[in-house]
Amino acid sequence: MQFGILINEGPYQHQASDSAYLFTKAALEQGHEVPRIFFYMDGVNNATRLQEPQQDDRNIVRRWSQLAETHGIDLVVCVAAALRRGIKDEVLAPGFRISGLGQLVEIGIQADRLVTFGD
């Protein structure tokens, strides 16, 4: 089955992106596909490579990049939400790209299930 994932909250502040990561990993381990993860609102803060978490903490951004590289996931960051928060192409971590909200509607149509993680 194909899953689209929507993440609406930023990393470290809220559990949403941790939950989404663990869900996505479990889905992939069960042989499902996750063609796209869409980051919206404060969720766009998952995409910046400038983050430096402390040594004893998880690196949420790197986790997304690694998952995307291993499984070919399209990590899409909402352009309007990103720009108003200072997330631009030059700060994107590997695997992320900035695009429009149409990409969210599109994965809603294309995927068998859209799973939302928010506040």
Binding site: M1, F3, L22, F23, K25, A26, E29, Q30, H32, V115
Partner: peptide, 10 residues
């Protein structure tokens, strides 16, 4: 567990 979460969505 998370695998169960995935299965519930399926």
């Amino acid at each position: 567990d998370y695998a169960g979460f995935v299965q519930l969505v399926v």
